[in-house]
Design a protein around this nucleic acid. Sequence first.
DNA 1: CGGACGTTTGCATGTTGTTGCACGTTTTTA
DNA 2: TAAAAACGTGCAACAACATGCAAACGTCCG
Lengths: 268, 268
Amino acid sequence: MARQPVIAPDSGILPEERQQRILAALRHDGRVVAAELSARFAVSEDSIRRDLRELAAQGLCKRVYGGALLPAATPTPLKQRRGEHSARKLMLARKAVSLVRPRQTLLIDAGTTNAAIAAALPMEAGLTVITNAPHIAQLLLDREGFAVLLIGGRIDASIGGTVGAQAVEQVRRLRADLCFPGACAIDVAHGLWGFDSEEALFKRAMIDASDEAVVVATDDKLGVVATHQVAELSRVQHLVVEHSADRATRSAFATHGVAVHRAEAAAD
Amino acid sequence: MARQPVIAPDSGILPEERQQRILAALRHDGRVVAAELSARFAVSEDSIRRDLRELAAQGLCKRVYGGALLPAATPTPLKQRRGEHSARKLMLARKAVSLVRPRQTLLIDAGTTNAAIAAALPMEAGLTVITNAPHIAQLLLDREGFAVLLIGGRIDASIGGTVGAQAVEQVRRLRADLCFPGACAIDVAHGLWGFDSEEALFKRAMIDASDEAVVVATDDKLGVVATHQVAELSRVQHLVVEHSADRATRSAFATHGVAVHRAEAAAD
DNA sequence: CGGACGTTTGCATGTTGTTGCACGTTTTTA
DNA sequence: TAAAAACGTGCAACAACATGCAAACGTCCG
């Protein structure tokens, strides 16, 4: 029997593009059905299955009978992330802390880098620290000598601190000398970025409530952007980078009016 | 007789997705009924039974006649209870946790006894926990499976949590099923007491925001008073005491309408 | 221009997974 | 104790799956 000729994809859609769209549909609905995808893209179910198999091999979806689901969310990143990169982050934190002066009020975002900064803050400098991260609050309580204010609200487990409307509202009623918004990404042209919408809004509120903003960024966060903008670069007064940070990148930020501070080399 | 043809799932739901939804329903309600699931997903009860059997094999549910229940709470790992809490507080916490039902919202005050309770709470019971103590919030975040809300405000270092006007105002906007106000002292005639004025006001706000109050008290707190009254005894529905608590004292509270729960004897 | 090569695709084939039903057993209830 | 409900198991039907293969298409050279 004559086999149906294999025609070129009528919609002109490329295989890789199709996979991206499958992924988008998966993330939108939480699940995809092979038969439905076959109809939507006008290809055989075999091709769809091949796509799903490939995506599953990359860990981007979980293959199940009849289609695919979102992969089981890795629920344990925070505990593991803590203590990671400790030597490098310690040097960053030491440099960041040198910007703090006695009796100032600090606004410290959640995050492992910021936890390192909190751990490096000088005791007996009469500092007041406002934070949305219970981990950082507890850390400062244990060290004693700090006045600690907690930002309330719903805690996002993946962030490790409170975000959302209630948290933003509380920050609006406060005023700080310095703030440390955790950076997900920072770029000369487009400023500061966050991964999550709520997170970005909260960071923006932090910056608005502070006289100066200090962004502490590991190398992998420099020159890249994420999905949600926090603020223009003009809202950032200080940038603390690792010793290994690219020289051209550093001068690029400096020419845009940001004071760039380079950490000492890690001793490891 | 012609067997009814095995048709494709009409609702387009994937088998594995169905299992996930069953699990979600189980964690939401604490129980599921096979017949109801059969109707909801438009599959035979046989398939539902197969799903439940499979989930039970993974320890994700407990199979019972007619449906399934949440698995028995995982006993607290030895690592956590070693040294952290005394054996007496552990027994108190276990008794206190037995009053908690799936999907409830809890209001937990700061304090070491309450930290023991938080550590003993069953995971995957869909609990929402509101607390003013960063230590308890962090503890629950690390254990995963809890929705955590933080009460913001100034942290009192000697208490280990937020108190004061801002914290009270936030509690007023919340509603909980159960609250655990840390007890400084409790007396039949004069009710619940606190050492600090701000602390007492906050505990009072907690009780006002909850349907029921559970006071967990070590022996040294029974029958004594402190300086600031929190609430009359009529606002306390449950009292959890140690195994060693005086019998006369227990019956005295019981005759005043308080349900007295006696913890098991400590094993050591 | 044309042939070799790799990629993508649909189809054929055999295998695996899922489902509903029949039947006998166990558990609950009246 | 008896009836009813729920349960487990084996079975057959059907859907989904993996694999191998050949056709169609694009690209890279000669």
